[in-house]
């Protein structure tokens, strides 16, 4: 009896050591790619922030031009980010300088604003623009994850991911085309 218990314990510890060994090899300590629940909640909350952003920037677009509605948030955002950086002074992750192209994310974001403002006034309307944009975003994200583009961690999507993705997309399409409102 005692012997079997002992075996069981050693078996467990051995299994555990294999697990930690693998984890060490798969991911370095400073970059844990294992998703946690609070990451999910944070991403969901960020989506809520996006709704507020669309509401506020849309209000600006009612009074001013489309250029104004994207220029002002960038201006106030730059000031706010600078203030936060000066107050918090977060420590940089690496001492080596990042390549110059990593600073160009803002250009891509600004072109997005122009493209959407061009397509909103066509037969696509707001709902069509949003729906096609979601499709493009999801497909490119999946591709980037599979390939590990731009030096980000590579992740092969699982079957669960595809199921969850299609459920969320279907729900979104229903809300966009039949839900009314924004």
């Amino acid at each position: 009896m005692a012997r079997s218990v002992k075996y069981k314990v050693t078996g467990q510890t051995r299994f555990k050591s294999i697990c930690t060994h693998r984890a060490k090899h798969d991911r370095p300590a400073h970059m844990d790619t294992q998703p946690r629940l609070f990451h999910f909640i944070a991403a969901f909350g960020a989506g809520g922030l996006l709704t507020l952003m669309v509401l506020f920037n849309g209000t600006l677009a009612v009074y001013g031009s489309l250029f104004f509605a994207s220029w002002v948030p960038h201006l106030t955002g730059t000031i706010a980010a600078l203030a936060i950086l000066l107050v918090l002074r977060p420590k940089r992750a690496a001492t080596t300088r990042p390549p110059l192209w990593t600073y160009l994310g803002g250009v891509s974001g600004a072109i997005t604003v122009m493209l959407t403002s061009a397509t909103i006034n066509t037969a696509l309307a707001l709902s069509g623009t949003i729906a096609l944009g979601l499709a493009g975003q999801v497909i490119f994200s999946l591709f980037a994850d599979m390939r590990g583009l731009f030096g980000l961690p590579q992740r092969m999507p699982t079957r669960q991911d595809y199921v969850s993705l299609s459920l969320i997309l279907t729900g979104s399409i229903i809300l966009i085309f039949f839900g009314g409102g924004t």
């Binding site: 970059m31 980010a81 990593t102 994310g105 891509s108 493009g136």
Partner: peptide
């Protein structure tokens, strides 16, 4: 216009990836 709308979505994702890469070397803020 459909292609442009899809391209807009791709650019949203692209922008997030480039910013994410910058955040790896510096900070998210």
């Amino acid at each position: 216009f459909g292609t442009l709308a899809v391209l807009a979505g791709i650019l949203v994702s692209l922008s997030r990836q480039i910013n994410g890469r910058l955040a790896l070397s510096t900070t998210a803020m």
